[in-house]
């Protein structure tokens, strides 16, 4: 008998994988973006199941609210009329799929062989280090133990903002074309 936890996990996992497959097979990039949003929501649900409440909120706000809106914006900026008639896949797709399937089999074998070690003891109570006040504890760890990486990340974002503005600016070449 499956518990509610398991049913929820398998439902989220199946929806996530199916819409991920839709992302890479749809012809229209807008459809791909919408399916990717579905996948991201499912991943946020899986974070909730893993008691990472803060990360689930960040996933929805940053990915769905920020990055995907940026994607849709760029799709509308560069949308081509000819796109719908062109080939979707490039010439080496047979080899690519073969290599990827080999990769998946490798991953599966490794995880399967180590499955016994990965199983949590069934009735061990969860420690409350992760489950209570997730955001508060995450903040304490982030601002004390990981202060320097945090500052470096903020610097990285600053560089990315400037880089994106410079790249997307109109006159790129110096000959004033």
């Amino acid at each position: 008998m499956m518990t509610f936890d398991q049913i929820l996990f398998y439902a989220l996992a199946v929806i996530a994988v199916l819409s991920a497959i839709m992302v890479i097979t749809r012809r229209n990039p807008v459809h791909s973006a919408l399916f990717l949003i579905t996948t991201l929501f499912c991943v946020a649900g899986i974070y909730l199941q893993l008691h990472a409440e803060f990360l689930a909120a960040v996933q929805v706000i940053v990915y769905v609210g920020g990055i995907m809106v940026l994607f849709l914006f760029v799709i509308m900026l560069v949308n081509l009329e000819t796109l719908s008639q062109e080939r979707r896949f490039n010439r080496q797709w047979h080899i690519a799929i073969l290599v990827s399937v080999v990769l998946l089999v490798e991953f599966g074998t490794i995880i399967w062989r180590g499955k016994a070690a990965l199983q949590l003891p069934a009735n061990q109570p969860l420690m409350d280090t992760l489950t209570t006040n997730n955001s508060e504890q995450l903040g304490v760890v982030l601002y004390q133990q990981y202060m320097l990486p945090f500052e470096i990340a903020s610097f990285l974002l600053l560089v990315a903002i400037i880089g994106a503005v410079i790249l997307a600016k109109r006159r790129l070449s110096s000959d004033g074309k």
């Binding site: 890479i24 791909s32 896949f89 797709w93 690519a96 990827s100």
Partner: peptide, 9 residues
């Protein structure tokens, strides 16, 4: 990444 032609995808 390996099969699609559209950079956005």
């Amino acid at each position: 990444v390996l099969t699609r032609r559209n950079i956005i995808i």
